[in-house]
Nucleic acid binder design. Structure first.
Lengths: 339, 339
DNA sequence: TGTTAGCACTCTCTTTTAATGAGTGCTAAC
DNA sequence: GTTAGCACTCATTAAAAGAGAGTGCTAACA
């Protein structure tokens, strides 16, 4: 790969990204003045094709980049674009706009990214926090009805109403609270060991249901951990891409987006720390091999907790989008850590 | 409209719904033995066209139903189909499957409807309950930090952490709780009058912040009322419909589905009590005039709170889908009222 | 008077054929 | 090593021809 080959490859990709049309030697000679004639460029392109970086849709068409070509381009030929002032401001503003609502925050981030890139944006939200339990309380609602409240160290509140067979005496209430508090406080709901609680429940004559409810509540929190935590925004941008004028392709890609397992697997922060670029076949999903995904993880106080990304056709403006994704992930990390 | 005209109209619609192809006189004569020749049917069809119930895409094509035709069909020619045993079981089972999680419940209902109809399903969720406040409590977390908890008559729990300048004495805590309880209990958060609370806050020397936080919490609940509460499921089914082989149409419809204002307006239970069928232009949205929406409202203890519906092409299996939508809305009403 | 067979006519859809043109690969000259 | 020239390939577009489905109308029939 001498310097001129690199220039030609870069030219092919730039032009193809902009036009979505196979790029011919004449076009390159005209637009990107490399100081050589089309014929020379033809020779270089022939070499590049032999190397697998570009390919022809058919004889007598221009060249388009292969996945391998994009990969080389991303790894060696580009520099991440810095986000423009205007866009940078927009990002900051919109984050402010989401207020202190957590849910809204993630949705805004996703929406902003999708708007700025004109592609589908994907957000893998952090798992529910699993800080250890701090406080357990029983709040009387009506004679036989109580609200069981559990609060973790980081002030997340979980609650569940429960119904007893007979009312708790005031001192019984305090006693129960004390038992629950001593059994549960300091424990982590994610890795909760039910045996101790089960044992206590079995030794109880009355109020056994109370402990069972507590277990239910913990169980439901545990269950939520595995819940889908993927947001997708701007799916419709896919329809704007010329590579998706074929309805079948659209259907496949939208199907993958709707059943978010694939995305979650791929973008789980463990699988994709930092900035990742998946190009075409690297997504190892047949129906997605005309797509690329660019993602960046974000963190809370240095700990990676989720990631945000962009899904578009392999023919993507990589320098720009990598810049945007990284910028937004940084902004998110900053705000989340502060909050 | 004599009996035979009705039969012909029914035949045209049945066949068109099944095949998505314009229906010719010969087809009807063969498939639906009305005991007359194609020529006679041609005459009837000519009349039906004059009446505006069917139309020709072009000369020398068969007929397709017009919106007016579908309307007549729905109003006069069909009986709602009763849901088959298997499907009925499925509906009950899947509702059980959603457990006691409210959110999951609505999502399941939506998913089931979409799966059974092979169309997009729409759910307008109930507004957040606005039952009057029953219980207000302050729970100590750390010396200066407290959790403000408000519970309504129907056991919805709202909470907010708050930080005070100095710790509350135990009797102060009880005193505060008592004030809050007496000021707020019985009131409705939706129509909350802030003046009383404001006055108390102003008269306080310490702990003023506490009341301000309480107002914040009520305000945020109030704010949530207006939030989008529309679920959509099975959007992709639209791509299966032959009328949407045109990408432009797909884009328009998906756009409407993504910006759910239109749907919310239309399906707000006030606008659409009971079962509603909107056909084509009745949707009064140009990009939707090839679509129909069938919806049914559901209720809690007799009070209509939301609705669920199906969006598909005007060429829809009305008897079946009306049956399914009504069945599911009834199931929802039953379960919600029970719960 | 209502029904039906027959037939010419219309219009879409498909296939065929031809024309266009962008782009390559190769050869030979510089 | 670079470049001009040229024959060749192949997708795309346009035009033309053919097939087929379905109608509307007319005239005959019960």
């Amino acid at each position: 790969m001498d310097e001129r080959k690199k220039q030609v490859l870069r030219a092919v990709i730039n032009d193809y990204v902009a036009t979505a049309e196979p790029v011919g030697s004449r076009t390159i000679a005209n637009k990107y003045n490399l100081g050589v004639s089309p014929a020379t460029i033809r020779n270089e392109m022939s070499d590049l094709e032999e190397l697998g970086y570009i390919k022809q849709p058919h004889t007598s068409a221009g060249r388009i980049p292969s996945d391998k070509g994009y990969r080389y381009y991303v790894d060696n030929l580009i520099e991440t674009e810095t986000v423009s002032k205007a866009e940078d401001d927009l990002i900051s503003q919109l984050f402010i706009h989401s207020g202190s609502q957590m849910d809204a925050f993630f949705q805004y981030a996703c929406r902003v990214l999708s708007k700025l890139t004109n592609h589908a944006a994907i957000m893998v939200k952090p798992h529910i926090t699993t800080a250890p339990l701090k406080k357990i309380s029983l709040m009387p609602l009506e004679p036989k009805r109580y609200l069981l409240i559990m609060i973790t160290e980081d002030d997340a509140v979980y609650h569940r109403p429960l119904e007893l067979d007979e009312p708790l005496q005031k001192k019984d209430l305090q006693y129960m609270e004390a038992i629950l508090q001593s059994t549960l406080a300091g424990q982590n709901m994610e890795h909760f060991n039910f045996t101790a609680l089960k044992e206590i429940a079995n030794n109880m004559l009355f109020y056994k249901g109370l402990f069972l409810e507590a277990m239910e509540l913990i169980g439901s929190v545990k269950g939520k951990q595995d819940d889908s935590q993927v947001l997708v925004n701007g799916t419709l941008n896919i329809l704007n891409q010329p590579e998706f004028k074929d309805l079948e392709k659209v259907r496949y890609v939208l199907e993958v987006l709707e059943t978010d397992n694939f995305l979650r697997q791929l973008l789980l922060p463990k699988a994709s720390p930092g900035t990742m670029v998946y190009i075409g076949e690297e997504l190892t999903n047949e129906s997605m091999n005309c797509c690329s995904i660019i993602s960046a993880s974000y963190s809370i106080n240095g700990q990676t907790v989720g990631s945000i990304g962009v899904l578009g056709p392999t023919r993507m403006d990589y320098p720009r989008i990598i810049g945007l994704v990284e910028r937004i992930s940084k902004e998110m990390s900053g705000l989340l850590s502060h909050y």
